[in-house]
Write a protein that binds this DNA or RNA. Structure first.
Lengths: 215, 215, 215, 215
DNA sequence: CAATAATCGAGACGGTACGTCTTGTCTTCAC
DNA sequence: GTGAAGACAAGACGTACCGTCTCGATTATTG
């Protein structure tokens, strides 16, 4: 998104160096404001005021408020959904999906929704978000699915990209459309449903509950 | 979305009646502007000016520009994706998905993306959009899936809501995230993939091409 | 001010006749509103609403809110400052001035000030006000001064118009500039001052108090 | 009128300093517009546009368009009616009155009338106008009258404030009521009339013409 | 006594301006 | 040379009125 230097770099020459504390302060302030209102309703002026920072300081380093939020989101590692390598692939994926749903039910989901929303009117933002967040997550999931496929629990010929979308897109749809909650039940039912279709062995955590049959 | 009267009604008593032509003109103008720029960058002032209408006339009948666009979207029946009742359920669903993907690749997709984007900062909008558009479509799809299930081509115990999300959510994810195109190939691969998982008989239109195996 | 028919007239042919009660109601409502706020801040819409009358009804009969107020002002005979013919001219004039000051210290003064204020941006209004109010009052005063002159109490060669301005203009200046109050003391001092300059005999009501010497 | 800083001041700390050129430009533009239309019909938007200035810049420094005009009026020293100290008091006063009448017959009179008119609906404005303009002029005249009184040409016991009103109020009445012109004849007759009443020696410039006897 | 004609309340309409807010740039001073 | 403060041009916000208009309903006079 940024020709501008978003992350800290060494200053190429003399002069007062960029104040790291200021940078972090702005990121934190942006997230704080996002807890109370939508990204669209937040203004750069408000961020500057709340952070006790000049507007120019923000404009010097970021191109838009969405860019700030993306930085803050990534920097503060807000979505904590590791893909576990110590578990069998199938179990790791279920674990990952469940953590993601739980995360997206809260503030990180709010942030992701706001960014995607804002991005619909700004190609630069959506591109930045894809490159700095979404592609990374896909890579992690892709690797897990490949491991899973190698284990023989699922069909060797499976279309990985399609499977990824089938597994994760419903989470994003609920996040953005809000037609149904990102709750505990969903965290059980969604993996169970897809694993069932795949004829893959159900991890223990999914067996405990009976498979739901209807909405 | 609207306590306000969005559709034309008979005035209960005195007063100059609402001008239907004006209403339609505003809807059309809003869509025209949306062809050129994002919903966020469109201003109500611009709509009023382009339509040759007073701003008050717009504010009298709509609460936001998103509300106008939802009205316009629904009124002009821009998404023309009928669920065919003359086809076997499985075929009807594939037909429907393919038309939807084709539509969403174009202007209607642009509109839907803009509405969902704007809606992330306005709960009223997302609710209105769900109630006036999304729930209706789900109902149509739900009915088709029930017909399909009754035909015995798919498992009687299938979770219909989950199946719906698995079938359609990937379309919305591509629309909103833009990580991959809503193209001809996707229109083949997505139904083929899910039908494959379901062990459901592939409609003729999907057999012609070989099932893709990887991205 | 009005090509329009301001006072009730007989309709030249058929048709529903003008409603006299409505006319009076509008005038009264306008004055009521003027008690609370300035003429400039009053809107025709507010008058219509407060009177329970359609806007068109007002526009049919008056060209501006100032026109309404002038009508109301004249109609309700709000300034009650008769020139007494049963008194000697000098006394009648003092009586008249004192009543005028007393009146202008209250609501009628408020109205006159508002009309003159509004009139500064509307030549039609000031003309109408002159013709329907100010010239009439001048004529009455002029006649009294002529009577006074005939009595021999003042110089036969006196410039009547100038004397009129010298007597009355200070009242209007205080009304409009507000640099000093239109109070009891002023009602004594002003006539006493001018009568002193004229070497005219002081009426009894002015003798009671000693002539003030300075402010 | 202004809690706001109307005249240029040094900023107490950081921040871009106020642009003096912009301030002057706004004042000039306001007067320019006033040459063509009434103060009431002028809009702040029009001033901003004509001056090529943002509306916020105007609102930052002035509270109303009347406040701008008062500033402009005072700043540009538009009414040039000095009280001459090199002349005998009586002559200086006549000189002053005649210049004032001449001025008020033109654009400065137009401005003063507009301000007083607008002020009738805005107590803040009339107060500001009194304090920043009217009281100053009264002080100058008062001093001259005191000098005159000291010279022995007029009665030692004269009420100065009353005399001031008697001398000047007729000018304001003509300005605001427009019942008679502020012309050359008036500039002769008004001082001649009052000087006559005062039995004060007529300055040479008034002797040249015969005293008018009636209108 | 129906037809005609004007009035009335209500309120939609195209406009315009309001005063506020935000944007992104800029210009100063303090460090 | 960074950074806080804040002025600045631009222009959209949502509201309020403007003066006009279009309704249905009403109320006289005229044919």
């Amino acid at each position: 998104m940024n020709a501008k230097v978003t992350v800290l770099e060494k200053p190429r020459s003399g002069g007062r160096p960029r104040n790291e504390a200021t940078r972090v302060l702005i990121l934190r302030t942006a997230l704080d404001l996002l807890k109370k209102e939508s990204l669209q309703s937040i203004t750069i002026e408000a961020i500057a005021k709340a952070a006790g920072v000049g507007k120019a300081t923000i404009y010097r380093w970021w191109t838009s408020k969405a860019a700030i939020v993306i930085d803050a989101f990534i920097e503060h590692h807000i979505v904590r959904t590791p893909m576990r390598h110590d578990l069998p692939a199938g179990e790791a994926i279920v674990d990952h999906m469940q953590h993601l749903i739980e995360q997206y039910a809260g503030f990180p989901g709010q942030i992701v929704a706001q960014i995607i929303g804002e991005a619909q009117s700004n190609p630069t933002i959506i591109r930045e978000f894809r490159e700095r967040f979404h592609y990374g997550r896909r890579a992690v999931v892709r690797e897990a699915i490949e491991r899973w496929r190698a284990s023989g629990e699922i069909d060797r010929d499976i279309d990985i990209e399609m499977l990824m979308d089938v597994l994760y897109a419903p989470i994003y749809l609920r996040l953005l459309m809000g037609h149904a909650p990102l709750d505990e039940k969903f965290a059980q039912d969604l993996p169970a449903f897809v694993f069932g279709l795949l004829k893959a062995p159900l991890p223990a955590r999914l067996k405990s509950k009976k498979r739901s049959r209807s909405r």
